[in-house]
Every structure is written in structure tokens, then in C-alpha cells.
Design a protein around this nucleic acid. Sequence first.
DNA 1: GGAGCGCTGTATCGTATGTTACGTATTTTG
DNA 2: CAAAATACGTAACATACGATACAGCGCTCC
Lengths: 275, 275
Amino acid sequence: MISSIAELIAERMDAMPAGERRAAQTLIANYPLIGLKTVAEFSAAAGVSSPTILRFVARLGFQNYPEFQSTLQDELAAQLQSPATRTLNPPSPGGGATPPMLEATLDNMRETFRHLSDRQLADIAAQLAGRRGKTFLIGGRFTDPLARYMAAHLAIVQPEVFHLAGQESMWRDRLIDMGKRDVLVIFDIRRYQDSLIRFAEKAHQRGVQIVLFTDQWLSPIARFARHVIAGRTAVPSAWDSSAALFVVAEMLIATVTRQLEVEGSRRIRAMEDLR
Amino acid sequence: MISSIAELIAERMDAMPAGERRAAQTLIANYPLIGLKTVAEFSAAAGVSSPTILRFVARLGFQNYPEFQSTLQDELAAQLQSPATRTLNPPSPGGGATPPMLEATLDNMRETFRHLSDRQLADIAAQLAGRRGKTFLIGGRFTDPLARYMAAHLAIVQPEVFHLAGQESMWRDRLIDMGKRDVLVIFDIRRYQDSLIRFAEKAHQRGVQIVLFTDQWLSPIARFARHVIAGRTAVPSAWDSSAALFVVAEMLIATVTRQLEVEGSRRIRAMEDLR
DNA sequence: GGAGCGCTGTATCGTATGTTACGTATTTTG
DNA sequence: CAAAATACGTAACATACGATACAGCGCTCC
């Protein structure tokens, strides 16, 4: 089974004429980036003419150059998105091999945070801690527990935190209470739920600031969101993993708590007195 | 010092208008491949028009789109040629190293799994997948969302999965339905809740098999539990982290799903038909 | 409430890019 | 060694891509 273009080339290289073989070699040498550049650049790097490059990709079975490039890009995307192939990983102490699923989860978290700036986290935390308005949280079928988890914590350090639960009609009616001073935290990963999208749109129209937790393919809600957190979800399982989003949520909780330290601890003490 | 485009974007994202921010987000979400495609494809993915994409790259300081693409390619080339620098020197967009909290969370997971044998996980999964009895899930104040999350998934691949919600009196009465063929999954970390402990004890007396998710100090429920999963919870935050337990839960969900593959997929198909 | 500014999308334009035709060079074969 | 076939590059072509001008719209700030 031939999976990558590199293999395909290696297999047919011998059956190629001299010029095309040079093209093949230069492509392998700096794989796959040369193939993503223009035909002119490729041909210059290989020291052959443009038509030779085109004949080369034609011989590989592609209809035209763009098709060849698309395939290369897809291949690259697969490589980048599953860093499982990465050789360097912190060696698991104790000698026991870490299960693939844990491996993937840890990678997901690292990847997620790699694309998440401190600045962005700080901004979101500030928005949540800024006590000017109310905070609403809601999630989809599988992610609603994350919304609950976050709500459970935030509700302790500050007032006016509401988790939107129950039937759609229930929380849709809560829109009436939302304004531009308020924040709506939404969790939505594939398959994106229409009800949530509609809700987000209406909230957006009312000027509500939306913080979206989604996957790397971005829920359509991203269109309405002030802040978007894109977590990696791919794991060797029948389900997507929300673990990375969970960790981001915990970090936000921690940051918000720290910012509200003074009032927060006062609240907590008052709460304990109430028991 | 700004080395990657991702950093550059993270820094200027806030100063961007809505449309360009959407472009930035989609680029970050599938970094960097979208940026290597044509302007038309990029704009379609971001849900904006082509000129917005061009204004976006212009704002990043590039003279034109090809220049932007070249920079992305160079960056990618550097990454591909030395995969070592990728993990050792993770170019986090914020410019800083991995945040301490993420560091601690990752450590927690590794530690948690180090003390968790495959055998134990397999046993628990078998217990959950063994379809002889019902499955109940419940959690404490902060961990109940984890119970919900697990219940949401398990309920799809097998029947008779119940999350115990609402007031204490509610689920206490459900004890009547529980017997020795049933499994009760409990999440309980500090500060351990009396109500949960009482509930676990009564369930144990009825012969219910208890699977306990707790922290490293072990909830008192451990005494009644058939299986105990002790997750690390310490992080530099005012709160404990449930992330490790979350990951264990996800892994169990995955394993159970795999074991029930045949019946599970039949169930899923039947469910989709019902829509 | 009105005027000004800034952002965004539509439509058009110029051009760089991939593609093809054709002539020359090079190798292969009888 | 000659003749044919294949390979390669030059040059002309068409398409699709990036770039730009302009108008509509919403937003902010007097």
C-alpha cells in the first residue's frame, strides 16, 4: 500500500528519464516544501525546465499541478495534526509504555496551548473577572458538563454566574436578561449543534460578549465570538476528546480566581459562615 | 523577540477588526496550512471575503500574499527539518515557556497513569461493559460534571446508564433499584462530601459494585469501593485540578466503547434513525 | 441625533502561473 | 552507422489568482 507521495516517487524513480529524476531527487531532498512552491521555483531548484516538472507530476498520476499540491498539503496536514509520530516525547518513567490514548491527549494539550497566547488567556480572564455584567455558560451534548464545571467554580468567586441548563426553550428565554455588559461562554465541538448556533447568534445581536470553546475546525459560532479557544480533540477513540478544553477551562478558572482574590476570598468566607 | 507568524498574530489580534480577527483565528486553528492555500480558499474557510484576507496579511506587515506564504513555508521548513526544536523549544505564541499550570497538569496525568495499571483499567472497563446490570454515576460539587460527561457517552453505547442528579433525597431513593449486578461510579475529591459517603456506604451494603474516582488522598469511600482510581490534583491554583481524572474517564469511555463495538454501533445507528 | 470615520464586501483589472505546441537535441535500436 | 523514437527546452497561450477601486453599512464620537 502506497500512502505517501514520497513512497510513490521512490518506487517509480528508476523508470524515469534523467530530467524528471532530477526533479524527483530535489523534491525528496527538501520534502515536501519545494512541491508547494510554484512550478517555476521548483524547476529552478531542480535545474530543469517547467514542462519537465509538469511531466514529472503527470507521471506520478496527477492530472495537473494544483492537484499534486493539494495532495502534498493534505499529507502535511495529517502529519502536523497527529504529532503522535513525533519521536521525541518525555520518556515515561518507570519503564512502562504510556498508552497511546494518553500520549495523544498530552500532545493535544501541548498543541492547544501552543496556539494559545498568554495574552489571549489573560484577556478572557479579565473579561470574566470584570464584574460589570453577568456570566452565562452553556455547552453542547457532550461539552455541557464542561460548562457546568466552570460554572461551579466561577459561581463561588463572583456573583451572577449562571449555567444555562434544561430545554432549549428555557435558556432561549434567558436572552431577555442578556446585554452588552454580559459574557456568554459556549462550549461547542463537532458535531456542532444548530440550537447552540442560533442561540449564539441571537446573543450576539444583543451585544453579548461571547467566549467560545471549540475544536480546531471551529464551530460556526466563531463568527460571533469575541474570543475563540480552539482545542485539539483527536484521539485514538471513537469519541473526540474534550480534555484539552477542560484544561484550558481549569486554567481560566485559576486565573479568574487569582484576579478576584480579594473579593473572592471574602465571598468564600461569607459562604462558609452560612453553613 | 517575535520569531513565528503565530506569535505575531497573537500579539496583534486584539488590534484587529472583526473580519480580520476571524481570519486570524482560522489561521491559528489550522496553522499553518490554510495560509498556504489560495486567498479564495482561505477566505472561504474563514467566512470572509478575499480582500479581508489580503488586508489581514497586510496588517501583519507583509507586502503581498506571496510574501506571506513564503514566510510561512520557511517557518514550516525549519520545523520539519529539526523536529527536535519543536518539542524542546515550543514556540508558544505568547512568547513565554509553557505555563506552570499546564506543566503541573501534564505531570499530574503522567503520575496518575504511572500508578494505574493497564490491568486495572481493563478490569474497570470490563465491569462497565459487562451488560449484566445497570450503571449509575454521581459526583460531588465540582466533580459531578465529570459524572455527567461520562454518563453522556456511556448512555449512547449501552442501555441502562443513569446519572444521579438533583437533590440528595432524589438519588437516595434510587438505591431501591440498585443491586449486586449494578455498578456505581462515584467522583469524590476533597473536600469529601458526607452525603456521598453515606450514599456509597448504603450502596455498598446492597452489594453494588463501586468504582471510585478520587484524589491521591483517597476519599473515605475507597473503603467500600471495588475499584479506586486515584488522580493527582495538585496545581498552582486555588482549586484542585480534576483534569487527570477527566482523562482517565475519557480513556475508560474509549475502552468501553471499543469493547461494545458491535452492539454499540448498532445502537448508535438505531439512534440516528430515530432523529 | 447627526456627521464622520472605519470596516467590509462586490466587481473589475492586471498579471503571474500553469499549460500546451513545436522544434531541437539526445539516446536507442536495427 | 543510420534512422527512429524519445526526451527536453523555448516560446506562446489561457486561466485563475492576487490586487485594487468603490460603494454600502455600522459604529463611534461629538
